[in-house]
């Protein structure tokens, strides 16, 4: 005789709850393994030019200084929209970002002028141009320097931990920071938010970032965690479309040991870059290409 079906009340037993939690934990770990970047360096695939949104996480004085040294050769024809993430009350970082964009704008204008100069002789030898040449020039045309207020935004998130804040309340303020990171991740702040995107540039700015660039501040850890949550649930194709790739650069001041942010992010970012040879290979991952700042 078959055993009678267990009564419905067995769903509330401790063992059932444990079984359910274990199953969920296994599923979650498998998903995490799938979304986390692997340690083995794969050769990057060559991809065609497309408008690209990059998110730059700024922190307190030193980190912000180093970040702008890192970004000194930023090409606005490739990285067409920039979102700077700053902590509330950090007026210094916000003004440095605006200053940096002014400089990019000046450089972009010079670049565009120079491009016009170069194109003049091309018209003269126009007869010699083949199909490939024309295609290339079309591509070049698309690659205009993208500067000015419509090509960047500054997103403010609450500070994760104020100086002298109690360690007990830090998890709560960090959670608040985490939640407020989703909005700037999902879209850049548009100048005309009610209007649908007018071109590919605007469409890319209103999409998830293609690349996240961080160094040591606490906010960086939280932004990366938020981007992993988006990848975990593949929100707006964060994972399937290969969005939110992350590069972490350890501070130039770190010679022998990683910072706390570095230790946390070592296994969570796509590329982990150190600036002193002694740190090369940390976590089977840290890359060293010389001093970058």
């Amino acid at each position: 005789m078959a055993a009678p079906a267990p009564p419905l009340s067995s769903l509330y037993t401790l063992s059932f709850l444990l079984a359910l939690l274990t199953t969920l934990a296994v599923i979650a770990s498998l998903r995490l393994l799938a979304i986390l970047p692997s340690n083995t360096q794969t050769k990057p695939l060559k991809s065609r030019w497309r408008p690209t949104r990059v998110m730059i996480v700024l922190g307190s004085g030193g980190h912000t200084h180093e970040m702008f040294y890192l970004l000194r050769d930023l090409d606005t024809r490739k990285y067409t929209h920039r979102t700077y993430v700053v902590s509330s009350g950090d007026a210094f970082s916000a003004s440095r970002a605006a200053e940096f964009e002014k400089e990019l704008e000046r450089r972009g204008k010079e670049d565009n002028l120079r491009q016009q100069d170069v194109e003049i002789p091309q018209i003269v030898i126009g007869a010699k141009r083949d199909v490939a040449g024309i295609e290339r020039s079309n591509d070049e045309e698309k690659r205009r320097a993208c500067t000015g207020p419509e090509n960047y935004d500054i997103a403010t998130v609450p500070r994760a931990r104020r100086i002298h804040q109690s360690i007990l309340t830090t998890p709560f303020t960090s959670l608040l920071t985490l939640l407020s990171c989703f909005k700037p991740l999902l879209t850049a702040q548009a100048i005309h938010p009610d209007r649908p995107p007018q071109d590919v540039y605007e469409a890319s700015a209103r999409d998830l970032p293609d690349l996240i660039i961080t160094n040591g501040p606490a906010t960086a850890v939280i932004v990366i965690l938020a981007s992993l949550a988006l990848k975990f649930f593949d929100i707006r194709g964060a994972n399937s479309r290969g969005k939110c790739k992350a590069i972490y650069t350890e501070s130039f001041a770190r010679v022998k040991t990683l910072s706390l942010s570095g230790k946390i992010l070592l296994r969570l970012v796509d590329r982990f870059v150190v600036q002193w040879e002694e740190l090369e290979g940390k976590g089977g991952k840290a890359e060293f290409w010389g001093i970058l700042v």
Partner: peptide, 8 residues
């Protein structure tokens, strides 16, 4: 390093 990561 940025370009390499993006495949540019």
């Amino acid at each position: 390093i940025m370009d390499e990561t993006m495949g540019f």
